[in-house]
C-alpha cells in the first residue's frame, strides 16, 4: 500500500504555512467525519448512572477521532511533507459508474445483463482498452459467473431480466 505522492511541482492551493498538505487535509477530513458522527449520534441516549447508553460509545470514539484528526492537522502544519497527491478522474469515475449500474440493474435486469454492463462500463476506465478483446472477455466472464454463482455455489441469483421470466 505504498501510495506515491505526487512530486510534480503542482501549483499548491494550500496556503504557504501548511508545510505538509497531505497530512493537513487528511486531518481536517477526519475531523469532519468525527463531527458528522457526533452530530449523527446526538439523538442517542448518553450515560444512565454508571451504565452506558446507546450513544456513549459512538460519542467516545467520535471525540477520540476529533482529537486525533486535530493532532494530524497540527502535524501537517509543522512538518515538511509531500504535496497533495494527484487525483485522476477517469478510473474512479468509470469504476464507480459501473458499480452503480450493477446495483441499479441487478434486481430488474438479472445478473447476465448487470454483469455485462458493469464490465463494459468499467472497461472505459482505462485508455488502453481494446474493444474486440474486451467484448470477448466480457462474454466469457459473464458466462463463467452465470455458471459459478447460481449453480456451482448454489447462491440464489436471478440470471435473466424479470420481464423475460414472466
Amino acid at each position: 500500500m505504498n501510495a506515491t505522492p505526487g512530486h510534480a511541482p503542482v501549483k499548491s492551493i494550500m496556503p504557504k504555512w501548511v508545510r505538509n498538505p497531505q497530512e493537513f487535509v487528511g486531518g481536517i477530513a477526519l475531523m469532519a467525519i468525527a463531527v458528522f458522527a457526533l452530530w449523527a449520534s446526538s439523538d442517542l441516549q448518553g450515560m444512565r448512572g454508571f451504565s452506558f447508553g446507546a450513544g456513549t460509545a459512538p460519542r467516545m470514539f467520535g471525540f477520540l477521532l476529533l482529537g486525533l484528526g486535530a493532532l494530524i492537522t497540527v502535524v501537517g502544519i509543522f512538518t515538511e511533507g509531500p504535496h497533495l497527491a494527484k487525483y485522476h478522474w477517469r478510473g474512479p469515475f468509470f469504476v464507480t459508474v459501473a458499480i452503480l449500474t450493477f446495483a441499479f440493474t441487478i434486481r430488474t435486469m438479472g445478473m447476465i445483463f448487470a454483469a455485462m454492463a458493469a464490465f463494459l462500463i468499467a472497461a472505459c476506465g482505462s485508455p488502453e482498452t481494446r474493444w474486440t478483446e474486451t467484448l470477448i472477455v466480457a462474454v466469457c466472464l459473464t458466462a463463467f459467473c452465470a455458471l459459478l454463482f447460481p449453480y456451482a455455489l448454489g447462491l440464489p441469483l436471478q440470471l435473466l431480466p424479470t420481464f423475460m421470466i414472466r
Partner: peptide
C-alpha cells in the same frame, strides 16, 4: 494477462460477490 482485461473482471466479480 493484461490489466486492461483484468480490472473490469474484478469489478464484476466483486459486485456479484457483494450482492450475493
Amino acid at each position: 494477462v493484461p490489466y486492461r482485461l483484468m480490472f473490469p473482471s474484478i469489478v464484476v466479480f466483486c459486485c456479484i460477490g457483494i450482492y450475493s
